[in-house]
Computed example of a mutant assay.
Amino acid sequence: MGQLVAGHGVASGRAADSPYPAGTISLQTPLFAAVGIDLSPYQPATLNLDFSPGEWRLRDPDQRVEQLHWSDRHPPETFSFWRCWLEPLDARLAAVGALIYYPHPETKQAHHQPAGLLELLAPPLGALSPGDRFRLWVDGRRCRLIQPARLRARLLEFLKFRVLAAQDAFFAEGVQGLRPWLQLHWPEACDLSDHDLELTLEQARFLYTESSPPPRP
């Protein structure tokens, strides 16, 4: 379940200090059309849905555009799109086909989004307000909402007897060694970020080895 939150106002052009008065979506739409991505059914603005404390893991998009040069104000950006269904909890509104709109953060200079927030392109839905709630129907093989805190707790328990047996030797290769090992033994844990894996290793060392510094909070 996602909750509508206010965005930066740049996609729509509503922000008073936006350098793009028409909005970034309006500027990008003809460029996407030129490579076969039709955004004309959608409102030229994004809906920002917050799913925190969950975090999204996205892969294998329906469409991807590499290095789109849509503005002279910053370098080209890469964009990916996933088809989805957006269902407002307001019974007066019907579910609609929508797109997950994902400017890749590694190519984006500003207005980064937290991992629990998705930007969506949808047809006009009428008056909406921050706090409105939506269900999002996606292909779960390619768009997964994970709960990092729960997954870290499960991983910590999974590591317990392995660390008790190996002690400090288990940590010799750090996160870079842990990730391929997890891919073999428990692939689900690979959804965790390197930062989360590091925190879990620190906690495992503190709890399950004979001498170690306390973990970071």
Rank of each mutant, 00 (worst) to 15 (best):
A33Q: 14
A33F: 09
A34L: 09
A34C: 04
V35D: 00
V35M: 04
V35F: 01
G36A: 06
I37N: 11
L39G: 01
Q43K: 13
Q43P: 00
Q43T: 12
P44G: 06
P44K: 09
A45S: 14
T46G: 09
T46I: 11
T46A: 13
L47P: 06
L47I: 11
N48M: 02
N48W: 04
L49Y: 08
L49I: 10
D50E: 07
F51S: 12
P53M: 07
P53C: 05
G54E: 03
G54F: 05
R57V: 12
R57S: 09
L58Q: 09
L58D: 02
R59D: 07
D60V: 11
D60C: 12
D60K: 14
D60W: 13
Q63M: 13
Q63V: 00
R64A: 05
R64I: 07
V65D: 05
E66Q: 14
Q67H: 13
Q67T: 11
Q67M: 10
Q67G: 01
Q67P: 05
H69P: 06
H69Y: 11
H69D: 12
W70P: 06
D72T: 12
R73V: 01
H74S: 05
H74E: 13
E77A: 06
T78Q: 07
T78P: 06
F79L: 11
F79W: 08
S80A: 15
F81R: 03
F81G: 02
W85K: 14
E87L: 11
P88D: 05
P88L: 10
P88Y: 09
L89K: 13
A91S: 15
R92H: 10
R92E: 08
